[in-house]
Design a protein around this nucleic acid. Structure first.
Length: 487
RNA sequence: GUCUCCUUCGUCUAGUGGUUAGGACACCGGGUUUUCAUCCCGGCAACGGGGGUUCAAUUCCCCCAGGAGAUACCA
Protein backbone atom coordinates (compact mmCIF):
# COMPACT_ATOMS: atom_id res chain seq x y z
CA UNK A 1 0.00 0.00 0.00
CA UNK A 2 1.33 3.39 -0.95
CA UNK A 3 2.20 5.81 1.81
CA UNK A 4 -0.14 8.76 2.24
CA UNK A 5 0.60 11.37 4.87
CA UNK A 6 -0.80 14.78 5.57
CA UNK A 7 0.04 18.12 7.07
CA UNK A 8 -3.11 19.49 8.62
CA UNK A 9 -2.57 22.99 9.94
CA UNK A 10 -5.17 25.21 11.44
CA UNK A 11 -5.17 28.69 9.87
CA UNK A 12 -5.22 30.48 13.18
CA UNK A 13 -1.76 31.97 13.18
CA UNK A 14 1.51 32.22 11.31
CA UNK A 15 3.38 29.10 10.29
CA UNK A 16 6.00 28.44 12.92
CA UNK A 17 9.06 26.31 13.38
CA UNK A 18 7.28 23.45 15.08
CA UNK A 19 4.54 23.14 12.49
CA UNK A 20 6.92 23.42 9.60
CA UNK A 21 9.15 20.75 11.09
CA UNK A 22 6.16 18.42 11.29
CA UNK A 23 5.26 19.24 7.69
CA UNK A 24 8.82 18.66 6.52
CA UNK A 25 9.10 15.29 8.21
CA UNK A 26 5.80 14.19 6.73
CA UNK A 27 6.85 15.44 3.32
CA UNK A 28 10.27 13.78 3.42
CA UNK A 29 8.80 10.55 4.68
CA UNK A 30 6.27 10.51 1.84
CA UNK A 31 8.87 11.31 -0.81
CA UNK A 32 11.38 8.78 0.50
CA UNK A 33 8.66 6.14 0.34
CA UNK A 34 7.39 7.19 -3.05
CA UNK A 35 4.15 8.18 -1.38
CA UNK A 36 1.80 11.13 -1.32
CA UNK A 37 1.94 14.28 0.77
CA UNK A 38 -1.42 15.91 1.34
CA UNK A 39 -2.37 19.32 2.66
CA UNK A 40 -5.61 19.61 4.58
CA UNK A 41 -6.87 22.81 6.11
CA UNK A 42 -8.38 22.30 9.55
CA UNK A 43 -10.48 25.40 9.81
CA UNK A 44 -13.05 24.19 12.30
CA UNK A 45 -12.18 26.86 14.83
CA UNK A 46 -14.25 29.69 13.45
CA UNK A 47 -13.31 32.01 16.30
CA UNK A 48 -9.61 32.06 15.59
CA UNK A 49 -9.65 31.53 11.84
CA UNK A 50 -8.04 34.18 9.67
CA UNK A 51 -7.45 34.63 5.95
CA UNK A 52 -3.99 36.01 6.63
CA UNK A 53 -3.01 32.78 8.31
CA UNK A 54 -4.13 30.82 5.32
CA UNK A 55 -2.18 33.08 2.98
CA UNK A 56 0.84 32.81 5.24
CA UNK A 57 0.64 29.03 4.96
CA UNK A 58 0.78 29.16 1.18
CA UNK A 59 3.50 31.81 1.14
CA UNK A 60 5.67 29.90 3.56
CA UNK A 61 5.61 26.62 1.73
CA UNK A 62 6.08 28.27 -1.60
CA UNK A 63 9.17 29.94 -0.20
CA UNK A 64 10.42 26.65 1.17
CA UNK A 65 9.80 24.99 -2.15
CA UNK A 66 7.63 22.29 -0.65
CA UNK A 67 4.71 21.14 -2.74
CA UNK A 68 1.87 18.85 -1.78
CA UNK A 69 0.45 16.25 -4.10
CA UNK A 70 -3.10 16.96 -3.07
CA UNK A 71 -4.58 20.00 -1.40
CA UNK A 72 -7.16 22.77 -1.64
CA UNK A 73 -5.22 24.58 -4.35
CA UNK A 74 -4.17 21.40 -6.13
CA UNK A 75 -7.24 19.24 -6.00
CA UNK A 76 -7.09 15.48 -5.75
CA UNK A 77 -9.32 12.46 -5.56
CA UNK A 78 -10.17 12.81 -1.91
CA UNK A 79 -11.31 16.41 -1.65
CA UNK A 80 -12.48 18.77 -0.57
CA UNK A 81 -9.33 19.40 1.45
CA UNK A 82 -10.81 22.08 3.63
CA UNK A 83 -12.73 20.87 6.65
CA UNK A 84 -15.34 23.59 6.61
CA UNK A 85 -16.36 22.26 3.19
CA UNK A 86 -16.85 18.78 4.61
CA UNK A 87 -19.27 19.92 7.26
CA UNK A 88 -22.03 17.42 6.56
CA UNK A 89 -19.75 14.46 6.97
CA UNK A 90 -18.94 15.20 10.57
CA UNK A 91 -22.53 15.74 11.60
CA UNK A 92 -23.55 12.53 9.97
CA UNK A 93 -21.01 10.46 11.85
CA UNK A 94 -21.72 12.20 15.12
CA UNK A 95 -25.39 11.36 14.73
CA UNK A 96 -24.45 7.81 13.97
CA UNK A 97 -22.50 7.54 17.20
CA UNK A 98 -25.43 8.93 19.15
CA UNK A 99 -27.82 6.44 17.64
CA UNK A 100 -25.43 3.66 18.52
CA UNK A 101 -25.21 4.89 22.09
CA UNK A 102 -21.54 5.81 21.72
CA UNK A 103 -22.04 9.54 22.03
CA UNK A 104 -24.53 11.88 23.63
CA UNK A 105 -25.75 15.42 23.66
CA UNK A 106 -24.55 17.60 26.50
CA UNK A 107 -26.39 20.73 27.54
CA UNK A 108 -23.96 22.03 30.13
CA UNK A 109 -23.21 25.71 29.88
CA UNK A 110 -19.71 27.05 29.55
CA UNK A 111 -20.26 28.77 32.86
CA UNK A 112 -20.94 25.49 34.61
CA UNK A 113 -17.91 23.92 32.98
CA UNK A 114 -15.68 26.82 33.93
CA UNK A 115 -16.84 26.70 37.51
CA UNK A 116 -16.31 22.95 37.59
CA UNK A 117 -12.79 23.30 36.30
CA UNK A 118 -11.94 26.09 38.71
CA UNK A 119 -13.15 24.01 41.62
CA UNK A 120 -11.21 20.96 40.51
CA UNK A 121 -8.04 22.95 40.22
CA UNK A 122 -8.52 24.66 43.53
CA UNK A 123 -9.16 21.45 45.43
CA UNK A 124 -6.46 19.57 43.53
CA UNK A 125 -8.96 16.84 42.91
CA UNK A 126 -7.53 13.75 41.29
CA UNK A 127 -10.45 13.76 38.90
CA UNK A 128 -10.05 16.54 36.38
CA UNK A 129 -12.22 17.38 33.47
CA UNK A 130 -15.85 16.99 32.59
CA UNK A 131 -17.98 15.25 35.23
CA UNK A 132 -20.15 13.44 32.68
CA UNK A 133 -23.18 15.31 33.97
CA UNK A 134 -25.23 14.77 30.79
CA UNK A 135 -24.07 11.26 29.97
CA UNK A 136 -27.20 9.62 31.31
CA UNK A 137 -29.88 12.21 30.89
CA UNK A 138 -33.42 10.89 30.60
CA UNK A 139 -35.48 11.61 27.52
CA UNK A 140 -37.58 14.01 29.58
CA UNK A 141 -34.57 15.98 30.75
CA UNK A 142 -33.26 16.21 27.20
CA UNK A 143 -36.61 17.36 25.92
CA UNK A 144 -36.69 20.06 28.54
CA UNK A 145 -33.30 21.44 27.55
CA UNK A 146 -34.32 21.34 23.91
CA UNK A 147 -37.51 23.20 24.76
CA UNK A 148 -35.39 25.86 26.44
CA UNK A 149 -33.47 26.21 23.21
CA UNK A 150 -30.12 25.17 24.67
CA UNK A 151 -27.66 24.40 21.92
CA UNK A 152 -26.01 21.13 22.88
CA UNK A 153 -22.55 19.82 22.16
CA UNK A 154 -22.00 16.18 21.31
CA UNK A 155 -19.68 14.24 23.55
CA UNK A 156 -18.05 10.89 23.02
CA UNK A 157 -18.59 8.19 25.62
CA UNK A 158 -15.24 7.06 26.88
CA UNK A 159 -15.59 3.57 28.39
CA UNK A 160 -15.65 3.70 32.18
CA UNK A 161 -13.26 0.81 32.53
CA UNK A 162 -10.68 -1.13 30.56
CA UNK A 163 -7.67 0.30 28.81
CA UNK A 164 -6.63 1.34 25.34
CA UNK A 165 -3.35 0.50 23.68
CA UNK A 166 -1.88 1.71 20.45
CA UNK A 167 1.43 1.26 18.77
CA UNK A 168 3.72 4.13 17.98
CA UNK A 169 6.57 3.63 15.54
CA UNK A 170 8.91 5.65 17.69
CA UNK A 171 7.60 5.06 21.19
CA UNK A 172 6.43 1.48 21.00
CA UNK A 173 3.20 0.44 22.70
CA UNK A 174 1.44 3.27 24.44
CA UNK A 175 -1.06 2.08 27.06
CA UNK A 176 -3.62 4.05 28.92
CA UNK A 177 -6.41 3.25 31.30
CA UNK A 178 -9.67 4.51 29.87
CA UNK A 179 -10.35 6.32 33.11
CA UNK A 180 -7.26 8.41 32.41
CA UNK A 181 -8.50 9.55 29.04
CA UNK A 182 -10.09 12.98 28.95
CA UNK A 183 -13.65 12.28 30.17
CA UNK A 184 -16.09 12.34 27.28
CA UNK A 185 -14.47 14.85 24.95
CA UNK A 186 -16.54 17.07 22.70
CA UNK A 187 -16.97 15.85 19.15
CA UNK A 188 -19.30 18.55 17.85
CA UNK A 189 -19.26 22.05 19.27
CA UNK A 190 -22.40 24.04 19.92
CA UNK A 191 -21.83 25.97 16.70
CA UNK A 192 -22.16 22.66 14.86
CA UNK A 193 -18.51 22.44 13.86
CA UNK A 194 -16.53 19.36 14.81
CA UNK A 195 -13.53 19.44 17.08
CA UNK A 196 -10.16 18.29 15.88
CA UNK A 197 -10.67 14.89 17.43
CA UNK A 198 -13.68 13.97 15.35
CA UNK A 199 -12.71 15.73 12.15
CA UNK A 200 -9.20 14.35 11.88
CA UNK A 201 -10.40 10.77 12.32
CA UNK A 202 -13.05 11.03 9.66
CA UNK A 203 -10.86 12.88 7.20
CA UNK A 204 -7.84 10.69 7.67
CA UNK A 205 -10.05 7.70 7.05
CA UNK A 206 -11.67 9.16 3.95
CA UNK A 207 -8.40 10.47 2.60
CA UNK A 208 -6.82 7.08 3.14
CA UNK A 209 -4.02 8.44 5.27
CA UNK A 210 -1.62 5.66 6.19
CA UNK A 211 0.72 7.35 8.67
CA UNK A 212 0.16 10.09 11.18
CA UNK A 213 3.28 11.99 12.10
CA UNK A 214 2.55 14.71 14.58
CA UNK A 215 4.20 16.34 17.57
CA UNK A 216 4.36 14.52 20.87
CA UNK A 217 2.01 17.02 22.44
CA UNK A 218 -0.70 14.95 20.77
CA UNK A 219 0.33 11.77 22.49
CA UNK A 220 -2.28 12.00 25.26
CA UNK A 221 -5.10 12.11 22.72
CA UNK A 222 -3.78 9.05 20.91
CA UNK A 223 -5.94 6.59 22.87
CA UNK A 224 -9.01 8.74 22.33
CA UNK A 225 -8.45 8.64 18.61
CA UNK A 226 -8.03 4.88 18.71
CA UNK A 227 -11.32 4.60 20.57
CA UNK A 228 -12.98 6.64 17.83
CA UNK A 229 -11.58 4.41 15.12
CA UNK A 230 -12.93 1.47 17.04
CA UNK A 231 -16.32 3.14 17.38
CA UNK A 232 -16.49 3.57 13.61
CA UNK A 233 -14.97 0.14 13.04
CA UNK A 234 -12.24 1.65 10.93
CA UNK A 235 -8.61 0.62 10.72
CA UNK A 236 -6.42 3.22 12.44
CA UNK A 237 -3.34 4.54 10.65
CA UNK A 238 0.21 4.02 11.86
CA UNK A 239 1.24 6.56 14.45
CA UNK A 240 4.53 8.29 14.95
CA UNK A 241 4.72 11.03 17.56
CA UNK A 242 7.58 13.37 16.86
CA UNK A 243 9.76 14.85 19.60
CA UNK A 244 8.92 18.46 20.33
CA UNK A 245 10.96 21.52 19.57
CA UNK A 246 11.88 23.49 22.66
CA UNK A 247 13.32 26.89 23.49
CA UNK A 248 16.59 27.38 25.29
CA UNK A 249 14.92 27.05 28.66
CA UNK A 250 13.51 23.65 27.81
CA UNK A 251 9.92 24.85 27.44
CA UNK A 252 7.91 24.42 24.29
CA UNK A 253 9.28 26.86 21.71
CA UNK A 254 7.29 30.08 21.68
CA UNK A 255 7.58 33.71 20.75
CA UNK A 256 9.33 34.69 23.93
CA UNK A 257 12.32 32.62 22.85
CA UNK A 258 12.77 34.79 19.76
CA UNK A 259 11.44 34.51 16.26
CA UNK A 260 9.36 31.42 15.71
CA UNK A 261 7.27 32.24 12.67
CA UNK A 262 8.77 31.46 9.30
CA UNK A 263 7.71 34.89 8.19
CA UNK A 264 10.22 36.37 10.61
CA UNK A 265 12.97 34.13 9.33
CA UNK A 266 12.17 34.95 5.74
CA UNK A 267 12.28 38.68 6.29
CA UNK A 268 15.26 38.28 8.60
CA UNK A 269 17.41 37.12 5.74
CA UNK A 270 17.47 33.36 6.06
CA UNK A 271 17.71 31.02 3.10
CA UNK A 272 15.18 28.22 2.68
CA UNK A 273 18.06 25.75 2.28
CA UNK A 274 19.39 26.68 5.71
CA UNK A 275 16.00 26.50 7.37
CA UNK A 276 15.18 23.14 5.86
CA UNK A 277 18.59 21.73 6.68
CA UNK A 278 18.66 22.94 10.24
CA UNK A 279 15.08 22.11 11.13
CA UNK A 280 15.46 18.60 9.80
CA UNK A 281 18.26 18.02 12.24
CA UNK A 282 16.14 18.60 15.31
CA UNK A 283 15.09 15.12 16.31
CA UNK A 284 16.63 13.42 13.32
CA UNK A 285 20.20 12.56 12.39
CA UNK A 286 21.54 10.69 9.41
CA UNK A 287 24.78 9.37 10.88
CA UNK A 288 27.68 10.44 13.06
CA UNK A 289 29.08 13.07 10.75
CA UNK A 290 27.02 14.24 7.83
CA UNK A 291 25.00 17.35 8.51
CA UNK A 292 24.55 19.06 5.18
CA UNK A 293 21.32 18.06 3.55
CA UNK A 294 19.36 19.83 0.91
CA UNK A 295 15.75 19.18 0.15
CA UNK A 296 16.52 16.69 -2.60
CA UNK A 297 18.84 14.73 -0.26
CA UNK A 298 16.22 14.48 2.44
CA UNK A 299 13.62 13.37 -0.08
CA UNK A 300 15.75 10.27 -0.52
CA UNK A 301 17.51 9.79 2.78
CA UNK A 302 14.84 10.45 5.37
CA UNK A 303 14.05 7.45 7.55
CA UNK A 304 11.71 7.02 10.49
CA UNK A 305 14.27 4.75 12.12
CA UNK A 306 16.66 7.65 12.59
CA UNK A 307 14.20 9.74 14.52
CA UNK A 308 15.07 10.67 18.06
CA UNK A 309 12.68 10.38 21.00
CA UNK A 310 13.94 13.23 23.11
CA UNK A 311 12.80 16.80 22.58
CA UNK A 312 15.32 19.14 20.99
CA UNK A 313 16.26 22.72 21.71
CA UNK A 314 16.12 25.13 18.82
CA UNK A 315 19.59 26.66 18.50
CA UNK A 316 19.44 30.02 16.74
CA UNK A 317 23.21 30.22 16.54
CA UNK A 318 23.56 26.98 14.69
CA UNK A 319 20.87 28.08 12.26
CA UNK A 320 22.85 31.26 11.67
CA UNK A 321 25.93 29.19 10.98
CA UNK A 322 24.06 27.06 8.46
CA UNK A 323 22.75 30.21 6.84
CA UNK A 324 26.26 31.61 6.44
CA UNK A 325 27.36 28.32 4.94
CA UNK A 326 24.54 28.35 2.41
CA UNK A 327 25.12 32.00 1.54
CA UNK A 328 28.71 31.13 0.68
CA UNK A 329 27.48 28.32 -1.55
CA UNK A 330 25.35 30.70 -3.58
CA UNK A 331 26.65 31.89 -6.93
CA UNK A 332 27.40 35.59 -7.07
CA UNK A 333 24.42 36.18 -9.30
CA UNK A 334 22.08 34.28 -7.03
CA UNK A 335 23.32 36.19 -4.00
CA UNK A 336 22.88 39.45 -5.85
CA UNK A 337 19.24 38.69 -6.58
CA UNK A 338 18.65 37.82 -2.94
CA UNK A 339 20.17 40.94 -1.43
CA UNK A 340 18.50 43.40 -3.78
CA UNK A 341 15.20 43.44 -1.86
CA UNK A 342 16.98 44.27 1.40
CA UNK A 343 18.82 47.17 -0.15
CA UNK A 344 15.73 48.33 -1.99
CA UNK A 345 13.77 48.27 1.27
CA UNK A 346 16.06 50.85 2.80
CA UNK A 347 15.67 53.06 -0.25
CA UNK A 348 19.34 52.61 -1.14
CA UNK A 349 18.44 50.95 -4.39
CA UNK A 350 15.84 51.56 -7.02
CA UNK A 351 13.77 48.71 -8.30
CA UNK A 352 14.98 47.60 -10.66
CA UNK A 353 18.49 48.89 -9.93
CA UNK A 354 19.92 51.47 -12.30
CA UNK A 355 22.84 50.29 -14.37
CA UNK A 356 25.27 52.16 -12.11
CA UNK A 357 23.71 50.46 -9.11
CA UNK A 358 23.82 47.15 -10.86
CA UNK A 359 27.53 47.59 -11.40
CA UNK A 360 28.00 48.48 -7.78
CA UNK A 361 26.11 45.35 -6.76
CA UNK A 362 28.39 43.22 -8.87
CA UNK A 363 31.40 44.71 -7.20
CA UNK A 364 29.90 44.38 -3.76
CA UNK A 365 29.17 40.66 -3.86
CA UNK A 366 32.73 39.29 -3.68
CA UNK A 367 33.66 41.40 -0.71
CA UNK A 368 30.56 40.78 1.39
CA UNK A 369 29.79 37.18 0.55
CA UNK A 370 32.01 35.59 3.14
CA UNK A 371 31.01 38.16 5.72
CA UNK A 372 27.24 37.62 5.68
CA UNK A 373 25.42 35.44 8.15
CA UNK A 374 22.03 36.79 7.18
CA UNK A 375 21.07 38.35 3.87
CA UNK A 376 19.89 41.36 5.83
CA UNK A 377 23.44 41.91 7.09
CA UNK A 378 24.12 43.49 3.72
CA UNK A 379 22.35 46.65 4.83
CA UNK A 380 24.59 47.70 7.73
CA UNK A 381 27.62 46.26 5.98
CA UNK A 382 27.25 48.49 2.95
CA UNK A 383 25.61 51.50 4.56
CA UNK A 384 28.76 53.58 4.03
CA UNK A 385 28.23 53.34 0.29
CA UNK A 386 24.84 54.94 0.42
CA UNK A 387 24.74 57.40 3.23
CA UNK A 388 26.66 59.98 5.15
CA UNK A 389 29.08 58.44 7.64
CA UNK A 390 30.41 61.55 9.30
CA UNK A 391 28.57 60.78 12.50
CA UNK A 392 31.34 58.59 13.86
CA UNK A 393 33.28 59.52 16.96
CA UNK A 394 36.63 61.20 16.40
CA UNK A 395 38.10 58.78 18.92
CA UNK A 396 37.32 55.94 16.50
CA UNK A 397 39.86 57.38 14.08
CA UNK A 398 42.65 56.98 16.60
CA UNK A 399 44.26 53.54 16.65
CA UNK A 400 45.19 51.99 19.96
CA UNK A 401 48.45 53.39 21.30
CA UNK A 402 48.26 56.37 18.94
CA UNK A 403 47.45 59.97 19.71
CA UNK A 404 45.65 62.69 17.80
CA UNK A 405 48.78 64.10 16.24
CA UNK A 406 49.94 60.70 15.05
CA UNK A 407 46.54 59.92 13.65
CA UNK A 408 46.36 63.16 11.75
CA UNK A 409 49.76 62.47 10.33
CA UNK A 410 48.72 58.98 9.26
CA UNK A 411 45.75 60.36 7.38
CA UNK A 412 47.93 62.94 5.71
CA UNK A 413 50.62 60.54 4.55
CA UNK A 414 48.13 57.83 3.61
CA UNK A 415 46.01 60.10 1.48
CA UNK A 416 48.48 60.42 -1.45
CA UNK A 417 48.66 56.65 -1.81
CA UNK A 418 44.91 56.34 -1.77
CA UNK A 419 44.78 59.10 -4.36
CA UNK A 420 46.54 56.77 -6.81
CA UNK A 421 43.95 54.07 -6.33
CA UNK A 422 42.48 54.25 -9.80
CA UNK A 423 45.83 53.53 -11.41
CA UNK A 424 46.91 50.83 -9.00
CA UNK A 425 45.89 47.29 -8.12
CA UNK A 426 45.07 46.29 -4.57
CA UNK A 427 48.37 44.45 -4.38
CA UNK A 428 50.34 47.47 -5.51
CA UNK A 429 48.56 49.67 -3.02
CA UNK A 430 49.28 47.24 -0.30
CA UNK A 431 52.94 47.23 -1.20
CA UNK A 432 53.01 50.99 -1.02
CA UNK A 433 51.44 50.98 2.40
CA UNK A 434 53.90 48.38 3.56
CA UNK A 435 56.74 50.56 2.33
CA UNK A 436 55.18 53.54 4.06
CA UNK A 437 54.96 51.50 7.20
CA UNK A 438 58.67 50.77 7.01
CA UNK A 439 59.73 54.35 6.54
CA UNK A 440 57.24 55.98 8.88
CA UNK A 441 57.44 53.49 11.70
CA UNK A 442 53.66 53.15 11.89
CA UNK A 443 52.38 49.59 11.87
CA UNK A 444 50.48 48.63 8.76
CA UNK A 445 47.27 48.16 10.73
CA UNK A 446 47.64 51.55 12.37
CA UNK A 447 48.15 53.12 8.99
CA UNK A 448 45.01 51.68 7.49
CA UNK A 449 42.66 51.87 10.45
CA UNK A 450 42.16 55.66 10.45
CA UNK A 451 41.65 55.62 6.71
CA UNK A 452 39.10 52.85 7.11
CA UNK A 453 37.17 54.81 9.70
CA UNK A 454 37.42 57.97 7.66
CA UNK A 455 35.98 56.27 4.59
CA UNK A 456 33.48 53.83 6.06
CA UNK A 457 32.70 55.38 9.41
CA UNK A 458 33.54 52.16 11.19
CA UNK A 459 36.54 50.23 12.43
CA UNK A 460 35.04 47.15 10.86
CA UNK A 461 34.40 47.06 7.15
CA UNK A 462 35.00 45.09 4.00
CA UNK A 463 38.55 45.39 2.67
CA UNK A 464 39.45 49.04 2.41
CA UNK A 465 40.67 49.36 -1.16
CA UNK A 466 37.78 47.45 -2.63
CA UNK A 467 35.39 49.51 -0.52
CA UNK A 468 36.85 52.71 -1.91
CA UNK A 469 36.54 51.44 -5.45
CA UNK A 470 32.84 50.92 -4.84
CA UNK A 471 32.36 54.25 -3.16
CA UNK A 472 34.34 56.16 -5.75
CA UNK A 473 37.74 57.68 -5.22
CA UNK A 474 36.57 61.23 -5.15
CA UNK A 475 34.08 60.68 -2.38
CA UNK A 476 36.64 58.70 -0.43
CA UNK A 477 39.22 61.48 -0.62
CA UNK A 478 36.62 63.97 0.51
CA UNK A 479 35.88 61.81 3.52
CA UNK A 480 39.57 61.53 4.33
CA UNK A 481 39.94 65.29 4.09
CA UNK A 482 36.96 65.71 6.35
CA UNK A 483 38.58 63.40 8.85
CA UNK A 484 41.84 65.35 8.77
CA UNK A 485 39.88 68.52 9.32
CA UNK A 486 38.45 67.15 12.56
CA UNK A 487 41.80 67.45 14.30
C1' G B 1 -3.16 17.38 41.58
C1' U B 2 -3.57 13.32 37.83
C1' C B 3 -1.89 10.79 33.49
C1' U B 4 1.85 10.14 29.79
C1' C B 5 6.52 10.72 27.43
C1' C B 6 11.68 11.83 27.77
C1' U B 7 17.13 11.77 29.98
C1' U B 8 25.12 11.13 26.11
C1' C B 9 29.50 17.58 26.23
C1' G B 10 26.18 24.42 27.28
C1' U B 11 23.18 22.98 22.45
C1' C B 12 22.04 19.36 18.21
C1' U B 13 23.57 14.46 18.04
C1' A B 14 26.59 9.40 16.76
C1' G B 15 27.50 5.14 19.27
C1' U B 16 28.63 0.00 21.53
C1' G B 17 27.78 -5.50 26.79
C1' G B 18 34.71 -4.42 26.75
C1' U B 19 35.83 2.60 22.47
C1' U B 20 41.24 7.33 24.42
C1' A B 21 32.65 7.71 24.23
C1' G B 22 33.01 10.30 17.78
C1' G B 23 31.15 14.74 14.96
C1' A B 24 28.90 19.72 14.54
C1' C B 25 27.41 24.59 16.72
C1' A B 26 28.79 27.70 20.70
C1' C B 27 32.92 29.03 23.70
C1' C B 28 38.44 29.62 24.57
C1' G B 29 43.41 29.68 22.46
C1' G B 30 46.73 29.93 18.00
C1' G B 31 47.74 30.69 12.63
C1' U B 32 46.52 33.22 7.80
C1' U B 33 44.77 38.35 6.97
C1' U B 34 44.76 45.94 5.88
C1' U B 35 39.99 45.65 10.34
C1' C B 36 36.06 42.17 10.40
C1' A B 37 34.62 37.79 8.33
C1' U B 38 36.13 33.43 5.85
C1' C B 39 39.61 29.50 6.15
C1' C B 40 43.15 26.23 8.93
C1' C B 41 45.08 24.13 13.61
C1' G B 42 44.35 23.15 18.75
C1' G B 43 41.59 23.14 23.47
C1' C B 44 37.42 22.85 26.91
C1' A B 45 33.35 19.75 27.72
C1' A B 46 28.81 14.42 28.43
C1' C B 47 26.75 8.94 29.43
C1' G B 48 21.21 12.44 35.90
C1' G B 49 21.33 9.31 40.77
C1' G B 50 20.69 4.52 43.23
C1' G B 51 20.04 -0.56 42.93
C1' G B 52 20.41 -4.96 40.27
C1' U B 53 21.83 -8.73 35.81
C1' U B 54 26.92 -9.75 34.09
C1' C B 55 33.67 -11.46 34.28
C1' A B 56 32.34 -6.52 32.39
C1' A B 57 27.71 -1.79 31.95
C1' U B 58 26.86 4.59 28.93
C1' U B 59 24.60 0.27 26.54
C1' C B 60 19.81 -4.70 29.56
C1' C B 61 16.04 -4.51 33.93
C1' C B 62 13.88 -1.88 38.29
C1' C B 63 13.36 2.38 41.41
C1' C B 64 14.15 7.53 42.20
C1' A B 65 15.03 12.39 40.65
C1' G B 66 14.67 16.00 37.05
C1' G B 67 12.51 17.95 32.63
C1' A B 68 8.47 18.27 29.34
C1' G B 69 3.54 17.57 27.46
C1' A B 70 -1.65 16.83 28.19
C1' U B 71 -5.59 17.64 31.26
C1' A B 72 -10.42 23.63 26.45
C1' C B 73 -17.11 24.13 22.88
C1' C B 74 -7.79 25.39 20.25
C1' A B 75 -5.60 22.62 17.14
Amino acid sequence: MSVRVRYAPSPTGLQHIGGVRTALFNYFFAKSQGGEFILRIEDTDRERYSDESLQDLYDTFKWLGIEWDEGPDKGGEYGPYVQSERFGLYTKYAEQLISEGKAYKCYCSSERLDALRAEQQKDKKSQQGYDRHCRDLTDEQRAEFEAQGVKPVIRFKIPLDGKTVFHDVLLGDVKRKNTDISPDPILIKSDGFPTYHLANIIDDHYMKITHIMRAQEWLPSGPLHILLYQAFEWEPPIYCHLPMVMGKDGQKLSKRHGSTSLKDFISGGYLPEAIINYISLIGWAYDDSREFFEKADLEKLFELEKLNKAPGVFDYKKLDWFNGQYIRKLTDDALKEKIIPYLADTGNLETPPTSAQDKMLDGMIPIIKERLKLLSDVVPMTAFLFSDISGYDVADLIPKKQDEAGTKKILEIGRPIIAQLNEQSDEELEEKFKALSEESGFKLGDLLSPLRVAVTGSRVSPPLFASIRLLGLEAALERIDAAIARF
